[in-house]
Computed example of a mutant assay.
Amino acid sequence: MSPDPDGMSIGELAAQARTTVKTVRFYSDQGLLPEAARSSGGHRRYGPDAPARLRAIRSLRSLGVPVPEIGRVLDSGDTLEAVVARQLDDLGTQLAALRWREAALRALHEAAPGQLADRLELIGAVGVPPSTSALAQYWRRLLPVRLSARLRRAIVEAAVPQPPADPTPDQVLAFARLHALATAATDHCLASHRPATAAHPDLLYDGLHEAYQLVDAARRADRAPGPGGALDCFVAAHARARGTRDTPAFRRALTVGLAEADHPVMGRYWHLAGELTTDLTLGAADSWLRAALAGSTATD
């Protein structure tokens, strides 16, 4: 049978594409399936390319591609590769949210009697998927005002742990507690555990960054806290920021000053951060260096 010069009917198109008339009508109404013409009776007629186009539409929809994006693929020059990449990104976000939600529910399910309400309030304050914006804001308020924007960005990035991609219930709780610590910090509270402001904060934090990198290398080599490049770099950073030199007397004073500046809030922050990552945290690096410093002054 030769093709109808006026095109195929909606029923014929549905039959060829192995779908329903309702489906064809829906995609037509959405503008994804243009009509070639109308019959004398006003019925929709479709051209010879319509079956292939309809199959492409249904394939994309089966993968969850939204109708507007299908239109851009078919008519606006948007590549199929770009659409697939966006779908993968969206799916990754959805899966991360589901993994977080599952771990959060397990944390609630495993709560001891009397803990459930507190855990629910704690976990419920964190978005899904969780955002680190409150932690970043905490550090921006904590760091010295005169610190350069470059170092401020680098420190915030290093100090804020990212939520694990596949968290355990304990990690959900650790992140929720970090979030609670950050959001509860008032200006008065921050002032009580803000690091002492050096005369030259960029000199201090640039040197600390280098020292922490050396600690990371030492820990990977399984070296215990002790004398060496990491400790020398750490002490030199503090000395330069104060306009003085690295001497035994300065090391003794630095040991005392750092101990006096310790605050339980920061200790808790780094303990919780350590539960979220296997990488060396700034807090763990600082503890390694303080232990090395204490050892060096004890032998003077």
Rank of each mutant, 00 (worst) to 15 (best):
R58I: 07
D206E: 10
A298D: 09
D29Q: 04
H238C: 01
L54D: 10
P227A: 15
D49G: 12
V256R: 11
R55V: 03
H238A: 01
T23E: 04
H193E: 12
G283K: 14
A285P: 01
P225A: 02
S133R: 07
E121N: 06
A154F: 10
E110Y: 00
P66Q: 13
E110C: 02
L60W: 13
A174Q: 04
P51Q: 06
R153W: 08
G295W: 11
Q213P: 00
A180V: 15
D262S: 15
H43Y: 08
L204F: 02
G226S: 11
E81Q: 05
E69V: 08
P167Y: 14
F26G: 15
P34N: 04
P167N: 15
A291I: 03
A50R: 07
S62V: 09
R177M: 11
W139H: 15
L108V: 07
G267S: 12
R194N: 13
E12T: 14
G11E: 01
D166T: 13
L254F: 08
A285S: 07
S296Q: 06
R177S: 11
L203K: 11
G267E: 15
Q213G: 13
G267L: 11
A285V: 07
G71M: 10
R251H: 07
S62K: 15
A174N: 02
V128F: 02
A96G: 10
A221D: 12
A230F: 00
G7K: 00
A36G: 10
D187E: 14
D166S: 13
T299V: 03
A184S: 14
S148Y: 00
A221W: 08
E275K: 12
R242I: 00
T168Q: 08
G7A: 00
R72V: 01
P248R: 12
L173K: 05
T244L: 00
R140S: 01
P130K: 00
T183V: 13
D170L: 14
L272K: 07
A107V: 02
A236D: 01
Q115M: 01
F175D: 00
R220S: 08
L208T: 04
Q94F: 14
I57W: 02
G31T: 05
P129R: 13
G114R: 07
R245H: 00
D286V: 03
R106E: 15
P48I: 04
G77A: 14
F175Y: 05
S148M: 02
C233Q: 07
L80I: 07
R194P: 13
A249Y: 13
A273Q: 02
T299H: 09
A217M: 04
A249I: 09
V65C: 10
C189G: 12
T23P: 03
R72T: 12
R18D: 08
Q213H: 14
G64M: 06
A217G: 06
M1A: 15
T23W: 05
R146P: 07
Y138E: 06
V126K: 12
A217W: 03
R251G: 03
A236K: 00
P5E: 08
L289Y: 03
G274M: 03
S76D: 15
L258P: 02
L254A: 07
A237I: 06
A261I: 00
L143W: 05
Q87E: 07
T278W: 02
D246Y: 01
P34V: 08
